[in-house]
Amino acid sequence: MDFLRPAGWEEALAAKAEHPAAVPIAGGTDVMVEINFDHRRPDHLLDLGRIEELTAWEDLGDSVRLGASVPYSRIMKHLRGDLPGLALASHTVASPQIRNRGGVGGNLGTASPAGDAHPALLAAGAEIEAESVRGTRLIPVDDFYTGVKRNALAPDELIRAVRIRKADGPQQFSKVGTRNAMVIAVCAFGIALHPETRTVRTGIGSAAPTPIRAKAAEEFLNAALEEGNHWESEAPLPDSLVKQFATLAAGACNPIDDVRGTAAYRRHAIGVLARRTLGWTWSARERSTACA
């Protein structure tokens, strides 16, 4: 095994081009587990820990360009306003120690359906900035997850940053685990209200082979909100509407039975989370409207 320690981003891209099978390591919270437990022996480890720009973020006006290695603890602390859904998701990641090391780039690179950041990214709307010596491309998050623990990156590409749309309305994130802290998601749900476009976006984790959006639920809700003139109203949403949204969200799942939970439970729980988080965001919108 070789340990590559590029001092800068260009050097890292060059190394990845030269060794496309090299495994990038930043926070180490996925890669080192696999090495410690003898599940993985890459020929090259590519340490991204010395590349400072990966741990910085940048305000692009309507979005935040979040460096791939910005630790979750800093997202929680500094980006709660612009990226509330991701900040909430960050708070549910493993433990304080892990949140001090792990970042969104790792979640995306591993592309596990259980990664906590995915539902928040899907709900907010994001593009993954993938870069190689050949150049940079922006991959919409909806196109990023291609299979179980597979993503749209080319072998020579590294994740430089994620461009996440700033919140224009309330966002929520909720995850079910069988412990009250330090737990991998049995399933998770993210929701973002986008009053500017009068749309709602969602994200589901751990309830399908990849992170997904509950598209049918979104379409139903967007239409119903429009039809009922709800965006203009301060009233709570009708129960029947919320219930139908929850049913459709549960229906979007394609889960499996595994040691962490049953498929049936995951489907059920996503329905509950969809209903609750829609309620929370909608009432937060009422409050913010009222305050304004």
Binding site: M32, G49, S95
Partner: peptide
């Protein structure tokens, strides 16, 4: 941090 998840080289 968890030192078990920091590669020595890091």
């Amino acid at each position: 941090v968890c030192s078990c998840l920091v590669a020595a080289g890091q």
